[in-house]
């Protein structure tokens, strides 16, 4: 599996990271180095082995579906780059 410039562009877009066109070939090279390393995993026989989901066998705890720490909109908005009237503000999204 080899990653070309177009795949690198697509991955950068999926990751929502702007990568300029002239940086794509070097990025594709780096991906290929890392994927070459990862491909050693193909040597392992994993037949019948379940993918690990939790490293310690434990059941997730459950709790009542109630508000525990609500009513702190001000605190939640305090670090926002742009907050107005109790909301996060972003550029217009409606086309």
């Amino acid at each position: 599996m080899s990653i070309d410039k177009d795949t690198a562009r697509k991955v950068a877009h999926l990751a929502r990271i702007r990568v300029e066109d002239d940086a794509l070939p070097a990025l594709a090279d780096e991906f290929n180095t890392i994927l070459g390393f990862i491909e050693e995993l193909n040597e392992v026989n994993v037949d019948g082995i379940e993918p690990m989901t939790s490293v310690t066998p434990q059941r997730l705890k459950r709790r009542e579906d109630v508000v525990t720490e609500g009513d702190q909109a001000d605190k939640i908005l305090r670090n926002a780059p742009d907050a107005r009237e109790g909301f996060f503000a972003v550029p217009k999204v409606v086309e």
Binding site: A8, F31, M52, T53
Partner: peptide, 23 residues
Amino acid sequence: VMVGTYVLSAGFYDAYYNRARRV
């Protein structure tokens, strides 16, 4: 982040991510 995006993307999830979890 981009390597992670790639190994989780459609068509590669099984080949990379699930295989790594099996290993």
